[in-house]
Simulated scan of single mutants.
Amino acid sequence: MRTAGQGPGGFEKRDGHINPGQELIFAGSAGLAGARRILEAKKEILSRRFAPSFLRELKEEEYSVKSWLDQATAEKKSPVTAWEFAGEGGVLAALWNFSGIYCTGLDVDLRLFPVHQAAIEICELFELNPYRLYSENCVLLAADSGSRLVRELKKAGIPAAVIGWAEKGIARKLRHGEEAAGYLERPQPDELLKLGL
């Protein structure tokens, strides 16, 4: 599995920085790209289970997180200090990479990630984890003012939320609401592989 920013000796440092206490923001919809691939491959099964209007919602959200980030960073006014795009392995792989690349600990609440309802329903049907599902057009961001950044993203039509914060050390803490869920594990194979995709 591809691991962003990882070289032969481990993670390579890249431009940008994360300071302890900075907020972590997720922009995009976790697992949406993977759910779209499942829809293409399993259309017959899904059309028997879900209404056509429900499945059409998967294709209606159109925005470019990369274009927004390119423009925001080019203007030199962006509060973003570091970022990592999600992709294969979903948002959990991106969190692992983000922490490793910038050598920082994380405290993240999985319930705060924007996830499209249709993606959740498809994952439940096939017993998949939406946080390990392919998540193209999504990015993790670090900034001092997460709420301001979320407003800017939503104004551009991009789902976004503050999902946690950076911490000293290397611990990658996961939560489900107020309950501590444990620590982030090394990236697992993408959930699409369970369906042969």
Score class of each variant (00 low, 15 high):
Arg2Glu: 09
Thr3Val: 08
Thr3Asp: 03
Ala4Cys: 05
Gly7Cys: 11
Pro8Leu: 12
Glu12His: 11
Lys13Cys: 08
Lys13Trp: 13
Gly16Lys: 00
Gly16Tyr: 00
Pro20Cys: 09
Pro20Glu: 04
Pro20Phe: 01
Gln22Ile: 08
Leu24Ala: 01
Phe26Asp: 05
Ala27Glu: 14
Gly28Val: 09
Gly28Ile: 02
Gly31Glu: 10
Leu32Cys: 09
Ala33Cys: 10
Ala33Gln: 09
Ala33Thr: 13
Leu39Ala: 10
Glu40Tyr: 13
Leu46Asp: 14
Leu46Arg: 13
Arg48Trp: 07
Arg48Val: 00
Arg48Ile: 07
Arg48Tyr: 03
Pro52Lys: 11
Ser53Arg: 15
Phe54His: 09
Glu57Ser: 12
Leu58Lys: 10
Leu58Ile: 04
Leu58Met: 08
Glu62Ile: 10
Ser64Pro: 08
Leu69Trp: 10
Leu69Cys: 04
Asp70Glu: 13
Gln71Cys: 10
Ala72Lys: 11
Thr73Ala: 04
Ala74Gly: 07
Glu75Arg: 13
Lys76Asn: 14
Val80Met: 04
Ala82Phe: 06
Ala82Asn: 12
Phe85Cys: 06
Phe85Trp: 00
Ala86Gly: 11
Gly87His: 14
Gly87Ile: 12
Gly87Lys: 14
Leu92Lys: 01
Leu95Cys: 12
Leu95Val: 03
Trp96Phe: 14
Gly100Tyr: 07
Gly105Thr: 14
Gly105Asp: 12
Val108Arg: 09
Leu112Tyr: 02
Phe113Lys: 02
Ala119Glu: 11
Ile120Cys: 02
Ile120Gln: 14
Ile120Leu: 14
Ile122Leu: 10
Ile122Lys: 06
Ile122Asp: 07
Leu125His: 15
Leu128Met: 08
Asn129Glu: 13
Arg132Thr: 01
Leu133Asn: 14
Tyr134Thr: 03
Tyr134His: 07
Tyr134Trp: 09
Tyr134Asn: 03
Ser135Gln: 09
Glu136Leu: 12
Asn137Met: 01
Cys138Gly: 12
Cys138Gln: 07
Val139Gly: 05
Ala142Met: 05
Ala143Gln: 08
Ser147Tyr: 09
Leu149Ile: 02
Leu149Asp: 05
Val150Gln: 12
Val150Gly: 06
Val150Glu: 06
Arg151Trp: 05
Arg151Phe: 08
Ala156Cys: 06
Gly157Arg: 01
Pro159Thr: 01
Gly164Ser: 01
Gly164Cys: 00
Ala166Thr: 00
Ala166Glu: 00
Ala171Glu: 09
Ala171Trp: 05
Ala171Arg: 02
Arg172Met: 12
Arg172Gly: 04
Arg175Val: 03
Arg175Tyr: 07
Ala180Ile: 11
Tyr183Trp: 12
Glu185Lys: 13
Asp190Ser: 06
Glu191Phe: 03
Leu192Asn: 02
Gly196Trp: 10
